[in-house]
Design a protein around this nucleic acid. Structure first.
Lengths: 225, 225
DNA sequence: GCCAATCTTGCAGGCTCTGCAAACTTTTAT
DNA sequence: ATAAAAGTTTGCAGAGCCTGCAAGATTGGC
């Protein structure tokens, strides 16, 4: 969104972003080919044409290069969640608040699919993905607390943030192995619907998204798009 | 205590368990005192009175010593879940299936509280705890799949396993900072009830476990125990 | 007591990651 | 344009993690 920011990026920062991207790309490619433990930082740096020491100016650990840099900023989940009308059930409200981030991921589809494939074949990396979601989790806790009026150190906000995070991660992992045309947002929606209806077991007959309920739902903001 | 089991443990294996426990205890104590990054494997080994090399015969990494060894076996979650009567809603059934493990943790209360405190003050360890839950997660996926009749690679079993795992972890973290008399099982029950009712927001007034809602909700299969 | 299996230990070595200080490059001010 | 300031890259030294290997030390079975 923020196209021309107040302070123009400048040639220097552009080059930094470029180097960072090159390092991540090289790391992902090499690890995808050979496996995490058969790639050294030296090789990654070499492939990105910088010195090994420079690698560590960008990433604290080898694994960090695989997960990638910090998400862009923009309005935080916190603000977005509070912007959702009060009548909307929490899980659905969280879905709406996260939608822009999901769109970002979908926009970088290729990198993310590669990244998720790498994580799948190197299970030791999965915890790193969790850690990445954690900073967002902190914020989500605060956001849920603000929305519900509950204290941030009570059970509900923490539970909501962690389980929603887990549902999101599960959706991503499924997206990584789904058919070509499937969009991440649809999987997340499906997962959140199941979560929002208390993990009641779907009938094994169908496997499409089931609208939870026929009639008695009054508030249905149906976020089409 | 250990009378004569089918395969008698033997003096040797007993000593191994002892060494393992000593290493974990030393690791937890030192890291609790100084922080993860200010304790070396050499120091842990020293405190447990073995050589540094021996440390790595027991644990693959320094962090592993903190999390501790593999859980004892016994009937798996898989079997226990299938033993729960079919009418019981999934989340509640999972609670029952996990109860023995929860009791095990409660029985080792002191070690676990220390361990959780260490994890809290060294966030880089949290992913390790997640990883530990992961093997159980694999099994939970299979169990849920078996119980529901859904394929194990479909969304629902995966979602159920990951979110329930997240809820369990959240309960543990809260237990770690709860008042003296609180039992883990009660926190897990509370979390699972919230999860099973779709994360509907409790009214902010009370902070006890609340039956969700007074009036305007038609569809509420109030799980009144 | 003796053999075989197992466990412990030291050693060498590769890899990750950090602090430091010397180039080097871009930006800013003159 | 030129010089100073600010920021970046790099090499080097070194601590610490972790592994493979082979030589001792223990233990269990006969």
């Amino acid at each position: 969104m923020a196209t021309t920011a107040p302070t123009a990026p400048g040639r220097r920062d552009r080059k930094k972003q470029q180097t960072r991207a090159a390092l991540t790309a090289a790391a992902l490619r090499l690890v995808d080919e050979r496996g995490r433990d058969h790639v050294t930082v030296e090789e990654i740096a070499e492939a990105a044409d910088v010195s090994p020491r420079t690698f560590f100016n960008y990433f604290a650990t080898k694994d960090d290069a695989l997960i990638g840099g910090p998400l862009p900023d923009g309005p935080s989940i916190h603000d977005r969640l509070l912007a959702v009308p009060a009548g909307v059930p929490l899980v659905r409200a969280l879905l709406e608040a996260m939608t822009p981030d999901i769109a970002d991921i979908q926009a970088e589809r290729d990198v993310w699919l590669l990244r998720l494939r790498v994580i799948k074949s190197n299970p030791s990396l999965l915890p790193i993905l969790v850690a990445r979601g954690e900073c967002a989790e902190e914020e989500t806790i605060a956001a849920v607390a603000a929305r519900t009026g509950l204290p941030a150190d009570s059970m509900f906000p923490q539970l909501a943030a962690t389980t929603v995070g887990a549902a999101f991660r599960t959706s991503m992992m499924r997206w990584a192995t789904a058919d070509e045309g499937v969009e991440l947002i649809d999987l997340v929606r499906e997962a959140f619907d199941l979560l929002g209806s208390g993990l009641t077991e779907p009938s094994p007959a169908h496997d499409e998204v089931i609208p939870t309920e026929p009639s008695p739902a009054p508030t249905h903001e149906e976020v089409t798009r």
